[in-house]
Design a protein around this nucleic acid. Structure first.
Length: 922
RNA sequence: GGGCGGAUAGCUCAGUUGGAAGAGCGCUGCCCUUACAAGGCAGAGGUCACAGGUUCGAUCCCUGUUCCGCCUACCA
């Protein structure tokens, strides 16, 4: 097929699916430990299995594919390992919503049936994102696709859990944890998003017991929790109150009295009144203070954040108040409490107060500190090696700016709550002997609205688990044979924390593990640095004894054109699939790569993508152009014997090869893409292809055949160089060019060859570019249409340059469209020629016909003014004695040279001005 | 509250040892010149946020201020 017959515009659609299928069918993506080359491995950050590709994935995956294709072409044994994450809460929420729409619920279905239902949903929708990844061109080894709940990965999860438990690094305990009252599960600290809100600060008076005339005033943002207060704290060294420590206050709205304790950690004497209420069951600080003073923990609301009658009774809340509060959600109870306090005269004042509230990162419901038994990972011992791995440089974080972020979090790490009270996920491998733990196992039958009844099992604090790789058959304590498995599942990030080694076969010692671990690079967004990256580092060091990856490249977040976070509710989401459909996949990939500057978020606007769509089209047409001439004979010559344009483009291509490789080496995708864009469009297309047209059109002489060879050769190299960024376009074009091998994606990546650089040729090109530019400017000044030939002469102050101009004359004439003389007489005044001068180079263009001389004059006068300003600046600088005394000699020389050149230009411009004025009078 | 990043052309952003301010898009003018009008050529447009300091010289280094953004946090 000849490209010549193809459309004038590049049509990505017909090209993309065809090549992807071919690559995949030929097994190019498949990696094997026995393949030659040094291993290069990336594990993909597993997207949610039921998700679909959003623009954040598109960025993340494009960058990885660029690295992978680049390294593969470099001859590395390259593995890009794909997979998906079961995404516990997120997926469960999706399926629950579906059930709700059907009028059902997970409780109605029961646990087993519900989990089956999620697997069905996974089977139905799990391939969506995989197929979308293929549309993006991702060269993953799909034979090694993993899922966090695969058999192998589940085995790894159990193994890690059991071993950590054996070492005492996993424990079960009753703690105050973050609880989502909608998802009905515990969350880890980092699963809580903080949001600043305008709240109120309530000052409430607590009267002293036996002393109605004195009272302690406490301040709180959550007056409803006062019902669960079990003490009031003051600073032990606060002279206002320390005599009261040990006495008691009456707790408003209840029939209880509570002690006054001294606590220097909890109380800031400067804040509020200096007295703090303590509610150990509903506040993290208070919980710890409660531990210090051995205070009882009185919860007043339940797992749905509803006030509960039995609890209110236990807290000895006034009966009538209790009955009006029971069943209310926390938010609704607050105004009632406020009113009750006001009625009884306890409310001192209410002030505005800005505060942060925590929300569930999955459903945005306000989370509550909630007291319950949970499983935790003791993280301090795991964090120490994880800190060392980064400070020692065994793991590089790029850009470096995030290192402190990472270290700060690691050094201040809290224990990790890993149990979740949901059903979808890895169920915790812990069992409870029913006879030993009968006191701690609560089972109640629940009949829901639809009449179905299920059993709700609650494991109370104090139950003793048996942690094992599989269900125990008898109890070592009492010999019992009936067990209850812990109903909780693990935090979804627990399994993804094992990703770099579990996907390679661990705990088996596989060849894959031996070859590809540690992996090479992790490409990820900042948003999961703590969720995922930190945990992988800790767990990998623990279980593999080595880092999980050498480099962590952290890229930016993609925002919309206004810099807003993209979200479905805002309606500002850019759908990558839509963009790919409209502009082509390569255009999207190239856009994302160009915008991936470190340390800055990406504001993605569609116009940018359109610009790179045009770039793809430009390349397409460069290829079409080449094919107009490639059929003729081609003659390979040593570079040194080729024509000036050929030697120039070969040299420029070398520089480009060098720079693209260097930039990729340092993860500067933006600069690598920019280099390619600049070279291909503005050097290869704008100059080289224009320069060689006369030679190509001259037919079949030796110069023409040599030029054809260079044309084919450079285009072929460019396709290889560009392939990681624009895989589809480059493959399509490469296949039409003279080449060896069956696909560009498995060809060697261009490597720099210093011998092909030609600095003196590049220098000469700059002279040509300058001369052509001057003629074109003059042409515009005189309003000559581009097609109209012009007569002009050029000269240079410098004898050597002047001689070079002579060699460049044919190119100059061609590019400037006209007849060129290289003529020193240009320096002399002449009645009908307009002279322009720039840095020693003079151009005189013959004025014929009707031209707007006034316009030309205006422009020249303006240019003169600008030059004058600059000369003034330079002169005063050089006159500055301190400058000339202290500045480096070469800087001074530079400035002198520049000034001299400007002065010469100025003279010539004045000359031109004079000529123009003279012509105008005629 | 603490930490980090940003502020450069109308817009989005480069600018890495301090020494003549750059790109893309947009805009203006002229061109359908047989690869490409999704194009070509030539242009306009900037006190490099503000105020100090170091220096012969600062977009770049230091200090402070203002405005954005992010991360983090138990100040009730």
């Amino acid at each position: 097929m000849s490209i010549r017959q193809l459309e004038k515009t590049y049509d990505p659609k017909t090209v993309e699916s065809r090549w992807y299928r071919t690559w995949e069918a030929r097994g190019y993506f498949h990696a094997s430990p026995s393949n030659p080359g040094a291993p290069y491995c990336i594990v993909i950050p597993p997207p949610n299995v039921t998700g679909s590709l959003h623009v954040g994935h598109a960025l993340n995956h494009s960058l990885q594919d660029i690295l992978i294709r680049w390294r593969r072409m470099q001859g590395r044994n390259t593995l890009w390992l794909p997979g998906t994450d079961h995404a516990g809460i997120a997926t469960q929420n999706v399926v629950e919503k579906q059930l709700m729409a059907e009028g059902s619920s997970r409780e109605a279905l029961g646990r087993e049936r519900f989990i089956e239902r999620v697997w069905e949903w996974k089977a139905a929708s799990g391939n969506t994102i995989i197929n979308q990844q293929k549309e993006l061109g991702e060269s993953c080894d799909w034979d090694r696709l993993r899922f966090t709940m695969d058999e192998g990965l589940s085995k790894a999860v159990v193994e890690v859990f059991v071993r950590l438990h054996e070492e005492g690094l996993i424990y079960r305990g009753e703690r105050l944890i973050n609880w989502c009252p909608r998802c009905l599960t515990a969350l880890s600290d980092i699963e809580v998003e903080h949001e600043d809100v305008k709240g109120k600060l309530y000052s409430i008076s607590y009267p002293l017991e036996h002393d109605p005339n004195r009272a302690l005033t406490v301040a709180t943002t959550r007056p409803e929790t006062l019902l669960g207060d079990t003490a009031v704290a003051v600073h032990p060294e606060d002279p206002r109150y320390n005599d009261l420590i040990g006495r008691r206050v009456r707790l408003p709205l209840t029939r209880r009295t509570i002690p006054i304790v001294g606590d220097a950690l909890l109380v800031d004497r400067e804040f509020g009144t200096g007295a703090v209420k303590i509610t150990p069951a509903h506040d993290f600080n208070d919980f710890e203070a409660g531990e210090r003073h051995r205070l009882p923990r009185l919860a007043i609301f339940d797992h749905q954040a509803l006030l509960e009658m039995s609890k209110l009774k236990a807290a000895m809340v006034e009966e009538d108040l209790a009955s009006s509060l029971a069943g209310l959600p926390v938010g609704k109870a607050r105004p009632k409490i406020e009113q009750a306090l006001r009625d009884r005269g306890f409310l001192v004042k209410i002030e505005d107060h800005k505060m942060a509230i925590g929300k569930c990162y999955r459903c945005k419901t306000i989370v509550e500190p909630y007291l319950s038994p949970q499983w935790f990972v003791k993280t301090k011992p795991l964090a120490e090696p994880a800190i060392e791995a980064v400070t020692s440089g065994r793991i590089r974080i790029i850009p470096e700016g995030w290192v402190n972020n990472y270290l700060g979090w690691m050094r201040d790490i809290k224990d990790w709550c890993i149990s979740r009270q949901i059903w979808w996920g890895h169920q915790i491998p812990a069992w409870y002997c029913r006879s030993c733990n009968s006191r701690f196992i609560h089972e109640e039958s629940i009949t829901n609205a639809s009449g179905a009844s299920t059993t709700r099992t609650t494991l109370l604090h104090g139950a003793v688990p048996i942690v094992a790789r599989s269900a125990p058959t008898w109890c070592p304590v009492c010999g019992g044979t009936e067990f209850l498995r812990d109903p909780d599942v693990l935090d979804t990030w627990f399994s993804s924390g094992l990703w770099p080694f579990s996907t390679l076969g661990w705990p088996e010692q596989t060849p894959e593990l031996a070859t590809y671990y540690p992996t090479s690079t992790l490409v990820t967004g900042l948003d999961i640095l703590f969720f995922w990256v930190a945990r992988m580092i800790m767990l990998s060091l623990k279980f593999m004894g080595d880092v999980p990856f050498r480099d962590v490249y952290i890229h930016a977040l993609v925002r919309d054109a206004e810099g807003q976070k993209m979200s479905k509710s805002k309606g500002n989401v850019i759908d990558p699939l839509h963009v790919m459909e409209q502009y082509g996949t390569d255009a999207l990939r190239f856009t994302l790569a160009s915008m991936a500057s470190p340390g800055r978020d990406i504001k993605l606007a569609e116009e940018r993508i359109e610009g790179y769509r045009n770039f793809a089209n430009k390349i397409w047409n460069a290829a079409r152009f080449s094919h107009l001439y490639l059929d003729g004979p081609r003659e390979e010559r040593p570079v040194a014997e080729r024509s000036f344009p050929d030697r120039w483009i070969v040299s420029r291509l070398q520089e480009t090869i060098q720079r693209v490789n260097d930039e990729l080496e340092s993860y500067r995708f933006d600069r690598a893409a920019g280099t390619l864009y600049q070279f291909i469009w503005h050097e290869y297309c704008d100059w080289y292809l224009e320069l060689i047209k006369p030679a190509l059109q001259s037919g079949s002489d030796a110069t023409a055949s040599a030029t054809r060879q260079t044309l084919a050769e450079t285009l072929e190299v460019i396709m290889r160089l560009l392939h990681p960024f624009m895989p589809f376009l480059t493959e399509e074009i490469w296949q039409t060019l003279p080449h060896e091998g069956e696909s560009v994606m498995i060809q060697p990546y261009p490597a720099p060859d210093p011998l092909r650089r030609a600095p003196e040729i590049e220098q000469r090109f700059l002279l040509l570019e300058q001369a052509v530019g001057l003629v074109r400017t003059a042409r515009v000044l005189l309003n000559y249409p581009p097609a109209q030939p012009v007569w002009f002469s050029v000269a240079h102050d410098d004898a050597e340059r002047h001689k070079q101009l002579d060699d460049l004359r044919p190119h100059l004439a061609h590019l400037a469209r006209g007849t060129a003389d290289i003529d020193s007489s240009v320096m002399q005044p002449d009645g009908n020629r307009l002279r322009l001068v720039s840095e020693g180079l003079s151009v005189a263009i013959t004025v014929t016909g009707d031209v707007d001389l006034q316009k030309a004059l205006d422009r020249i006068v303006k240019q003169e003014e600008e030059q004058e300003k600059e000369m003034g600046r330079l002169q005063s600088k050089l006159a500055n004695q301190e400058f000339t005394a202290k500045a480096p000699a070469e800087v001074i020389a530079d400035h002198r040279q520049r000034l001299k050149s400007l002065q010469a230009d100025q003279l010539m411009l004045q000359n031109s001005e004079g000529q123009l004025r003279a012509m105008l009078k005629v």
